[in-house]
Design a protein around this nucleic acid. Structure first.
Length: 424
RNA sequence: GUGGGCGUAGCUUAGCGGUUAAAGCGCCUGGUUGUGGCCCAGGAGACCGAGGGUUCAAAUCCCUUCGCUCACCCCA
């Protein structure tokens, strides 16, 4: 670096990363706690896989031409010349762990969930970061559509518990290795003579990811999308039955959904069921949660054919929407006691009073030394303390404290030994 | 990778060619000796992102660069 960057540039968090400051922490805790509670209600167990893996875990599973892997993965070589990658998505690592630890011998499906950071080198914007945190679940080892329905049921329970009501669940099927290739050929055959009528991005999609053609937002592409061949008309019998069974279960469970052929997937290992959840007020990075079935993934990792299904959901986007929806979240633990001390030697006593309060489960804080009582009272107030124990010369000599209730302004002298019990 | 917007105190911003760069919030101190949320007074805090250029004179104009941000692609 030839130029000398300013101090602030040098010390700034890397691009696309963010510090979660104390004011934000309650939102994070709320989302995490809600996710864990809902997973518990569905019998899902937590799994934590490494933050980096052999790059092959992701490269072998994703398929060619996928942005997430081709240009967005953080790949590096360690000192042992192993090629490693920071986790770009959650599923591959969990399936790797499933295979490595022989979970196929457990009762199927194995139900797992995780909360973990993912890394993608793309350009940051609202709701998109180079490091983002995902809550995800995986149900591995059972091909039955009832599992799909249960996973989606968990999705709706999660949003409901979170307090996010205004969202749309879009479901779709993208077929499997039997019927999808033929469909993609049909799609290409349809678009090939019409490429002049389509936007530049769609011409690119035609080459790299034809199913994304159906998801284009350009006005000029809409008529073609409307008339394009539908995968639903090209499904093989197994895929069709699977999808119909799923929709039947969703209806039986009173889960509101819309079938949207535009819901596709960036990674190749997905099969059959896919879905996304979008907030009612659509922003750019609107997908709150997206999931799908991946019956071919385990084989790509060198394991036996193993069905699986799961989803991922980004904390950052969830929190954006919690704020937008004005969802009330639990506050931090309130401060029960603030101890203001005014004289030499009172500080040591204040520490003991605080310790006693904490021992009985009350949050307590000792005021800074050398500050006026007025200053310490201000601190206590701005921290939301319920009580202030004032420890000055008189109190210290008497072995007492002046206990002030900040909400009703009541004040009384009590023995130091009784402070902890006096906190309502 | 492509395009738009923006970079002035911790935060939000004003100033847009001319003396020691301003306000609100926050922070600190005080408004008689030991008392909060309101009010009043005072204080600390900014090499105006960086480098170069134009000019008698630049935070203010021009160029470059870095950063942030929003959108596209793609995605959580």
């Amino acid at each position: 670096m030839a130029d000398s960057p300013t101090r602030s540039q040098k010390l700034a968090a890397p691009r696309g990363t963010a510090d979660i400051l104390p004011d934000e922490a309650p939102y994070w805790r709320y989302v995490r706690d809600t996710a864990e509670r809902v997973c518990g209600l569905f019998g899902y167990k937590r799994i934590d896989t490494p933050i980096f893996e052999d790059a092959g875990v992701y490269l072998r599973t994703a398929g060619e031409g996928t942005d997430v892997l081709d240009k967005e993965m953080y790949v590096f070589e360690d000192r042992g010349e192993n090629v490693l990658a920071l986790r770009p998505e959650g599923t591959a690592g969990v399936v790797r762990a499933y295979l490595q630890h022989g979970m196929a011998s457990l009762q199927q499906p194995v139900r797992l969930f995780y909360v973990a950071p993912n890394f993608r080198y793309d350009r940051p914007q609202a709701g998109r970061y180079r490091q983002h945190t995902q809550f995800g679940i995986e149900a591995i080892g059972d091909p039955h559509p009832l599992v799909d329905a249960e996973v989606i049921q968990l999705v709706t329970a999660f949003f409901s518990e979170l307090g996010l009501r205004d969202y749309t669940l879009k479901v779709n099927t993208i077929g499997d290795s039997v019927c999808r290739p033929a469909y993609i050929e049909a799609l290409r055959a349809y678009y090939r003579p019409r490429l002049d009528d389509v936007c530049a991005d769609c011409r690119q999609r035609f080459e790299t990811n034809p199913m994304r053609l159906l998801d284009c937002k350009e006005q000029r592409c809409q008529p073609l999308i409307a008339d394009a061949p539908k995968l639903i008309d090209h499904l093989c019998d197994d895929c069709r039955q699977h999808f119909e069974a799923l929709l039947g279960y969703l209806g039986a469970a009173s889960i509101a959904y819309v079938v949207d052929p535009g819901v596709v997937r960036g990674l190749d290992y997905y099969t059959r069921t896919v879905w996304e959840c979008h907030p009612a007020v659509e922003g750019a990075q609107s997908s709150l949660l997206s999931g799908g079935r991946y019956d071919g993934l385990a084989e790509l990792l060198g394991g036996p054919r193993t069905p699986g299904i799961g989803f991922g959901s980004g904390f950052e986007r969830l929190i954006i929407n919690l704020k937008r929806a004005d969802v009330t979240i639990p506050d931090d633990e309130p401060l029960a006691l603030y101890i203001a001390h005014l004289t030499e030697g009172a500080g040591a006593v204040a520490l003991r009073i605080a310790a006693a309060a904490r021992a009985s489960g009350k949050a307590a804080m000792v005021g800074p030394g050398g500050r006026s009582l007025k200053s310490q009272m201000k601190h206590a107030d701005s921290r939301g303390a319920r009580y202030v124990a004032i420890l000055g010369k008189d109190e210290l000599a008497a072995g007492e404290v002046t206990l002030r209730n900040l909400s009703d302004h009541g004040e009384r002298r009590i023995a130091i030994a009784d402070v902890a019990d006096a906190l309502a």
